[in-house]
């Protein structure tokens, strides 16, 4: 019996955001947008979904006079991401 893949992470953009955030302390919105190639609106929606699930936290502040939105993965998000990767490995090893 395979573990069920987390539907929240099994989406291209959300998974990309989580993969980036899993490797850094924090990243700002502009960086996520640049790395994923997503539009601002699309990215905002997916970030909101991840925030609602407590997978990431979002902080709004300023860098100089410019507004800056910073995203950070939470321990819950880190655990969900690790679990997701483990599940993927199980799926792939079973398929061989």
């Amino acid at each position: 019996m395979f573990p069920k893949l987390d539907p929240l992470l099994h989406s291209e953009l959300r998974l990309a955001v989580m993969s980036i955030l899993a490797g850094v302390d924090e990243a700002d919105f502009t960086y996520l947008k640049k790395q994923t190639g997503a539009t601002s609106g699309n990215l905002s929606v997916q970030i909101d979904k991840l925030t609602a699930a407590d997978y990431i936290t979002v902080e709004k502040g300023f860098k100089g006079k410019m507004p800056r939105t910073t995203c950070k993965i939470t321990p819950t998000g880190q655990e969900a991401f690790s679990h997701y990767v483990e599940s993927l490995k199980e799926y792939l090893s079973a398929g061989k």
Binding site: E12, A16, I20, N42, V45, L92
Partner: peptide, 23 residues
């Protein structure tokens, strides 16, 4: 990048690997 694209397990793992490589 599409938000709701259905991915296979290998596509997901590839995406994670690519993201880590880009980083």
């Amino acid at each position: 990048m599409e938000q709701n694209k259905e991915m296979t397990a290998s596509e997901s793992l590839q995406l994670i690997t690519e993201t880590l490589n880009n980083s």
